[in-house]
Amino acid sequence: MFPTDTKILIVDDMLTMRKLVKKSLNGLGFTNITEAVDGEAAWNEVQNALKLGAPYSLIISDWNMPKMTGIDFLRKVRATDQTKHLPFVLLTAEFDRDQVIEAIKAGLSAYITKPFSMAILSEKLQSVWAHMASAAK
């Protein structure tokens, strides 16, 4: 599982959803959490963190957001050498098979369909961590 000091970026245009994800992550022991209000702000935050030498180790992003959607943000992350392997989890209120296939092709690490429990979040993060560990071998 991800260490509890993992630097995490939550991206959602809805404040209540950011709070909910943060509360769930706190419940799993994670405390190093930053929030961004859309894909554009998140991309700026990711780049700033890189410049400061303190990159993010996990992104949990909403799908539908103004300015830059979750999948466009994912594509930017994957298109950049320094972030192309950054674990990226998408949250969506609408499961759409075509969208999920599109996101997997774009390099999605995992997706979570809302509503989600802390147990589901934990399960998905464990799965992403296990995949990263096996890919590193």
Binding site: M14, T16, L20, A93, T113, K114, P115
Partner: peptide, 30 residues
């Protein structure tokens, strides 16, 4: 939902209703 007590519905809290309907709609739509 959020683990925070509020005494009135603030502008920021309003989007909680929107998000709940969004999730319900997403499930029903599927």
């Amino acid at each position: 939902m959020l683990g925070e007590k509020n005494t009135s519905i603030t502008k920021e809290l309003e989007d909680g209703a929107s998000e709940l309907l969004n999730i319900i709609f997403g499930q029903a739509k599927k």
